[in-house]
Amino acid sequence: MRARLKHIDDRLIWFGFLRLTDHASKFGISDVQGKIDIKTYRNLSDTPPPERKPGPPVAGAAPVGQYVRPSKFTPIFDSPGTLDDLFTTRLEDVGVDMALSIERVLPPTHSVDPDRVRPLLAAIELKESCKLHYQSMTSLAAVERVVCPHALVKASGRWHVRAFDFARKRFIDFSLSRVLGSEPFPAQTAVPANLDDDWFATVSVELVPHPKLSTAQRHIIGREFKMDDGQLVVQTRRALLFYLLDEMRLLAAVRRGEKDAADVPIWIRNFRHVASELSIMDAQRDATAHL
């Protein structure tokens, strides 16, 4: 129950609304149980989302089964949250009754302010356009952008949205930590996600132990990465190939075409194919970098 209440909190914080059907589907519960969760949440909240009773549509009101964040909103959980909470719920009061020495190396995080990105995230689910105030690394000052987002992605330690950029006339990625503000912009006709060819195109990356390794070393690498007969095939969206190679520390080596430059004990068997697919994405970035 606590995990489900935390999910309601997170949806209102980051998206600004909650759908009963989405909540029930995430936890595999009935709509009746979902209504009980929402009623419990409303009873616990100092700023409960208003409830729409069944009946004729009301102008300006949310549809039945959709609960909208009030203008003045206080979460019922006071622990600081991140976007990861949408997918995993941390129950910090659950202890482990065993003595374990566990340490994690945590790099600096990319901060995302929910107040700045809430309309942008809501636009993903509402399939609407959105106006951003965005600071990119290719422009000296922040600019206004009109986009139509369709997917939320976490890669290379950052959260991104995949969106059609009306200025560049193509689908690109926007880092949420660089969004200075966002607002709904339904006046701009939405662009269907199925027009994002790079999102729906897939690339097969055939990973093998690096040929410079000894026989024993190649064997242990195959076991470490659960390779089947010395090979592991990873399927990724072409739009996300850059991030996959970056996280595997293979990006620079693939771009230079130098397998000996790879600083990890794996390599790509179908290197030419992967390099060709990556070059398509790089060319698109270069062609629109000045816009």
Results as ranks from 00 to 15, higher is better:
A3H: 04
K6V: 02
I8L: 07
D10P: 06
R11G: 03
L12V: 03
I13P: 00
G16K: 04
F17V: 09
R19G: 02
L20P: 02
S30Y: 05
S30K: 14
G34R: 09
G34P: 04
I38V: 14
I38K: 05
L44R: 12
E51L: 07
E51G: 14
P54D: 15
V58W: 07
G60Q: 12
A61P: 04
Q66D: 05
R69P: 01
K72R: 12
K72Y: 10
G81I: 05
L83A: 08
D84C: 11
D84Q: 13
L86V: 07
T88A: 14
G95C: 10
R104I: 12
R104L: 10
L106I: 15
A122Q: 07
A123M: 02
I124R: 03
S129H: 01
L132R: 02
Y134K: 02
S136G: 08
M137V: 08
A141H: 05
V143D: 03
E144T: 14
V146F: 12
C148Q: 04
S156Q: 09
G157F: 11
G157M: 12
G157Y: 15
W159K: 05
H160A: 02
H160I: 03
R162C: 03
A163D: 00
F164T: 01
D165M: 08
A167M: 13
S175E: 04
S177I: 03
L180M: 10
S182G: 06
E183I: 04
P184L: 09
P184V: 01
P186W: 08
T189G: 05
T189L: 08
D196W: 01
D196A: 05
D197Q: 14
D198K: 11
W199D: 01
S204E: 09
L207Y: 00
H210D: 06
P211L: 04
R218Q: 09
F225C: 15
M227I: 09
D228C: 15
D229M: 12
T236Q: 10
Y243A: 01
D246S: 13
M248G: 03
R249T: 08
V254M: 10
R255H: 10
R256H: 12
G257T: 13
D260S: 02
A261G: 08
A262D: 07
D263M: 12
V264Q: 13
R269A: 11
F271S: 11
R272K: 11
A275Y: 06
L278T: 00
A283L: 11
Q284S: 08
R285V: 11
D286N: 10
A287C: 14
H290F: 09
